[in-house]
Design a protein around this nucleic acid. Sequence first.
DNA 1: TCCTCTATTGAGATTGAGTCTCAAAGAAGT
DNA 2: ACTTCTTTGAGACTCAATCTCAATAGAGGA
Lengths: 144, 144
Amino acid sequence: MHNTDKLKRILHKENLRYTQQRQEVWDEICASDEHQDAEGIYNSLRKRQVNVSRATVYRTIDVLVKNNLVRRLNLDDGRSRFENKTGIEHHDHIVCLDCRKIIEFMDGTIEKMQTRIAKEQGFEIVRHVHQLFGRCLDEKCPNK
Amino acid sequence: MHNTDKLKRILHKENLRYTQQRQEVWDEICASDEHQDAEGIYNSLRKRQVNVSRATVYRTIDVLVKNNLVRRLNLDDGRSRFENKTGIEHHDHIVCLDCRKIIEFMDGTIEKMQTRIAKEQGFEIVRHVHQLFGRCLDEKCPNK
DNA sequence: TCCTCTATTGAGATTGAGTCTCAAAGAAGT
DNA sequence: ACTTCTTTGAGACTCAATCTCAATAGAGGA
């Protein structure tokens, strides 16, 4: 399904109108895989002459997150970052504390274990956060 | 080692002075296991007639966190929460989305697996965040 | 105990991400 | 094109956290 159709589908489901601004915000999130924050999305749009207000960027992101088109990441740096969640397998993140490089990982065994652990404690998991912070061994990383 | 000694040790190491305010903040964190936020710690102190400013609460917490006496938790609710980290085994958290109940869990196998995964990706882990958000089955939980 | 040198403190200003307000603009059905 | 109702944008506002700076108070030495 094309990105525009995904957007139209959730807007219809939520009884919201299809607007140019919402399309532009969603396009920007689809176009980048850099885990941009809201300000970054806003700046990227302005850079290519798209006039969308900050308020609309935030409001649109909320709709996209609520409807599972976008994932909100909290990487402990004081702002939310966003990634397109469609057509992508679930994964968690490893973050370099020096260069802020973000890479993705996924381990089915860990996923199953955490579900079991939660159940043993009387919880039904809705979502989880699993982030590994450390130092990468990349030559270009500033701490080398 | 007594709590006061732990505090004095890190203050000395950091070339900082031992003050009544720093002792009070540390005492409050030691006295409670409710994962209080900075405002909560500030209010608890005022309630028992201890005059410490908000700025001092924040500044003291930073020193305690930096020196591993306190752990900062980011539970996705827009503020940091704190727990005494001394004399306590490492653990992660399960949080009920309805009643915000927090319980702790720890699984050695998962810990080892995440270290291995990070190494495979060229990272040396410094710290990790592993949080399970869901719904508890507690009778008293508001969503029942 | 007093002095001196600095670090610390408190009150309030400031920051910054995110939210809210409300008049004007714009979807979408008729 | 008309009407209705939603959405938008600009800027005010919120709230956790940080910063500023004059006044206060540790801590070592005399």
